[in-house]
């Protein structure tokens, strides 16, 4: 099986500071990859690079090769909006728009030109079903999304990301602001989504990486120290720095 995202010798600077050093990684389709590492190690920076969310930050310089389905994502002809339609993102804190549940989910499809009500209804329902929240909200789609619980808001944000039918979902600590029950619902959801989507998630919760992910990448000081099947990383890591980090000897 060939990778969906392929990164070769990628470096990233914030001004003078080099935040990522020669990162090489192949993300496999329909799998869950977890990025772990201490704060400031570059994992979130790297995640955001994958759908060019760093472009907006002044002073950022990126070198190396990042390919999505074989295409260089930094090539001139690439439309960033289309790239982000293919590679969606879910953030640490649920950030629903201050509008109805329905409008939150319909927002993306509308900006991509879908106006037909029947079509939109269909997309909204499917996205909410895929995000395992349909049954909880189907009777209050017109209610403001900000009235939902944190866990529901996060699943709504996942539905919003799914509504534009991406192939890849980037998740930046998607459960760190949630209680254990909501966390476990999101974890289950993520594992279900793997059937149809490729998921890359940053997590500070090591047990979450063990439970959920197929592959784990360990970042340290801007370097991708080790990337392997999750079971290998957490039972027989190849690099001493990985072992020291996951066993809590530093970080």
């Amino acid at each position: 099986m060939s990778s969906i995202i392929s990164v070769k010798d990628m470096c990233l600077w914030y001004g003078e500071h080099q935040a990522l050093k020669n990162v090489n990684i192949e993300i496999m389709p329909k799998s869950i990859t977890a990025f772990i590492g201490p704060s400031g190690c570059g994992k979130s920076t790297f995640l955001k690079t994958l759908n060019r969310m760093n472009d907006l930050i002044p002073g950022v310089k990126i070198t190396g090769d990042v390919r999505y389905e074989g295409t260089d994502i930094f090539a001139k002809e690439v439309d960033v909006n289309n790239l982000r339609k293919e590679i969606g993102m879910v953030f640490q804190k649920p950030n629903p728009f201050p509008m109805s549940i329905y409008d939150n989910v319909a927002y993306g499809p509308r900006t991509h030109g879908i106006t037909n009500k029947v079509k939109l209804d269909e997309i909204v329902e499917r996205a909410l079903r895929d995000a395992a929240i349909w049954d909880e909200v189907k009777d209050r789609l017109k209610k403001n999304a900000l009235g939902m619980s944190g866990g529901q808001q996060q699943r709504l944000c996942i539905a919003r990301a799914l509504a534009v039918q991406p192939k890849v979902l980037l998740m930046d600590e998607p459960t760190s602001a949630l209680d254990p029950i909501s966390t476990s619902r999101i974890e289950e959801l993520v594992m279900e989504l793997k059937e149809n989507y490729t998921i890359v998630m940053v997590t500070h919760n090591m047990q979450q990486a063990v439970r959920v992910s197929d592959y784990t990448a360990f970042f340290l000081l801007g370097e991708l120290v080790e990337f392997d099947k999750t079971d290998n990383i957490f039972s027989t890591p190849g690099d001493k720095r990985t072992e020291d980090y996951i066993t809590g000897r530093f970080g």
């Binding site: 090591m206 047990q207 063990v210 957490f234 039972s235 027989t236 890591p237 990985t242 072992e243 996951i246 066993t247």
Partner: peptide, 9 residues
């Protein structure tokens, strides 16, 4: 401790 790696082994 939910041990991993060498600790788990």
């Amino acid at each position: 401790q939910q041990p991993v790696a060498g600790d788990l082994r």
